[in-house]
């Protein structure tokens, strides 16, 4: 009940943010050099379609009415047509989402679970040589450009060692169903997931190290030790449980960064997700697709933030309306 109310409250708060993002998008289209109708319809569109776009978006009307028309189109799920394929942008994007979710989700789970564990272990011995080494290493990890790491992994594991495929999601002549298909996809996933999670592993190790060592200095941890709880239980029941709160928050907030990493990774590995789509759209100057992708990404991040809040509220009894 408490969670439901909280959820609805947070959902309401998201509306102004969504509006803000739409307005930014709208403002950018109008500020960009060139004719708005060309941006919306794509370069080289035939005059008839161009006229249709002008009508639909009310491009001859005053600006505020144009904004209204634009929001109206968006509410109908109309993100325009791809200039390249002439298909609705929303459909093109929806097609690509599962692949991106698979890649980013796997990397997120892998990096956060491993990161939290390593960080928590390091927090037990703050200032030790091991701790300093791991801290330095994790900083170096998230300083690596993710696309470059991907290339280097391809160079090593695909080109030199020939252990793993370097691109795509499935083999060309591979199985299309059953366990064989799953294994095939898994093989293709290893390298992209590895590059994406390596970068984020560094981030999460640091985050969890800081958060856990912070909670280990809290008075309730001293109470737990005075009561006589063994250190392992102090860590799990008292320190980690409380340290999860800031970790979860940051995890939710940085999803946008994770997605941008995913885009770059997909580009390197020709992974058929949103990132690859954006890359292709950039190359062919397919503006409607780029704008649509930005909107969808923004809403995804907002949704993730909402879920994070909910998770936070479930973890922390102090959250109230």
């Amino acid at each position: 009940m408490r969670l439901l109310r909280y959820f609805l409250f947070r959902l309401l708060q998201m509306f102004p943010i969504a509006l803000f993002i739409v307005v930014i998008n709208f403002a950018l289209i109008h500020m960009a050099p060139g004719d708005v109708s060309i941006l919306l319809a794509g370069e080289g569109a035939d005059p008839q379609y161009m006229e249709e776009v002008r009508q639909r978006y009310g491009l001859d009307l005053p600006l505020y009415q144009q904004l209204g028309a634009y929001i109206g189109q968006l509410l109908q799920g109309d993100l325009g047509l791809s200039f390249r394929t002439r298909e609705p942008v929303i459909g093109i994007i929806a097609e690509r989402i599962p692949a991106t979710l698979l890649l980013a989700g796997t990397a997120l789970v892998l990096a956060s679970v491993l990161g939290v564990i390593i960080g928590a272990v390091m927090a037990r011995r703050p200032g030790s040589a091991m701790d300093t080494a791991v801290t330095t290493l994790s900083i170096s990890l998230f300083s690596i450009p993710v696309f470059w790491l991907g290339l280097m992994l391809i160079l090593l594991f695909a080109v030199t060692l020939r252990w793993l495929p370097s691109s795509g999601m499935v083999s060309i002549a591979g199985p299309r169903e059953g366990i064989g298909y799953i294994l095939d996809v898994a093989m293709h996933m290893i390298l992209p997931v590895l590059s994406l999670s390596a970068i984020w592993l560094g981030q999460y190790v640091r985050l969890s190290r800081a958060s856990v060592s912070e909670t280990l200095a809290e008075p309730y941890v001293t109470t737990a030790r005075a009561i006589g709880f063994p250190e392992r239980r102090v860590m799990s029941r008292f320190a980690l449980r409380n340290a999860m709160l800031p970790i979860v928050t940051v995890l939710g907030l940085e999803l946008g960064l994770l997605l941008s990493g995913a885009v770059l990774t997909e580009t390197v590995f020709s992974w058929p997700g949103l990132g690859r789509l954006i890359y292709e759209a950039i190359l062919s100057r397919d503006t409607p697709v780029i704008m649509g992708a930005f909107l969808i990404m923004s809403f995804t991040v907002m949704l993730a933030a909402l879920l994070t809040d909910l998770l936070y509220a479930a973890l922390d009894p102090r959250v109230r309306l």
Binding site: I17, I21, I24, L28, L39, L253, S260, I278, I282, S298
Partner: peptide, 17 residues
């Protein structure tokens, strides 16, 4: 709001436009 915007995509969109 800025915390919630996927900034890389915004920059990408600006530069693309």
């Amino acid at each position: 709001i800025f915390l919630l915007i996927p900034t890389f995509f915004l920059i990408l969109l600006i530069v693309a436009l």
